[in-house]
C-alpha cells in the first residue's frame, strides 16, 4: 500500500495561486529490470493522477515508465472557495490511492 504525502496550504486568499506538492511511495517498476534471479520484474506503475477541487477536476496527469520511483509532483491551483481537494492515484494493478485536503479561503 502506497503512502501518500500532500502539502496544501491550509488557508489562502481568494484568487491566490497556491502551490501543491505530492509524494507517493511507489516502486514505479518500469518493466525493464531483472531481479537477482534474472526474472523480469513486471511493470507496476501509477499511470494516472487526478485532482478535484470541490468536485470539479482541475488538474490530472498520465504517467509512464520514465517517472521516478516515489513520484514527486509540484503543480498549482487557484484558491477559489473553501472546501476540499481530492487526490487520486491509479496504478497498473488496479489499486487506487486517495487523499483529501481541506482548504479555507478568505
Amino acid at each position: 500500500m502506497a503512502e501518500v504525502r500532500v502539502a496544501v496550504p491550509p488557508t489562502a486568499r481568494k484568487g491566490e495561486v497556491i502551490e501543491i506538492k505530492t509524494l507517493v511511495s511507489h516502486p514505479m517498476d518500469n518493466g525493464f529490470l531483472l531481479d537477482y534471479g534474472g526474472r523480469m520484474i513486471p511493470r507496476w506503475i501509477i499511470n494516472r493522477f487526478e485532482v478535484e477541487y470541490n468536485g470539479e477536476m482541475v488538474f490530472s496527469a498520465d504517467w509512464h515508465v520514465s517517472i521516478s520511483t516515489n513520484p514527486y509532483l509540484i503543480f498549482y491551483t487557484v484558491a477559489t472557495e473553501t472546501g476540499q481537494l481530492d487526490f487520486k492515484w491509479y496504478d497498473d494493478n488496479g489499486e487506487i490511492y486517495t487523499h483529501t485536503a481541506e482548504i479555507t479561503v478568505t
Binding site: V17, M57, S60, S66, I74
Partner: peptide, 20 residues
C-alpha cells in the same frame, strides 16, 4: 514520460517532477 492536463483553474502553467 508524462502528460499533464491543465485548466484555467490551475492559475499557473507549471509542473515539477522527477524523471528517469
Amino acid at each position: 514520460v508524462a502528460d499533464y492536463y491543465l485548466t484555467p483553474r490551475c492559475g499557473k502553467a507549471e509542473i515539477t517532477t522527477r524523471i528517469r
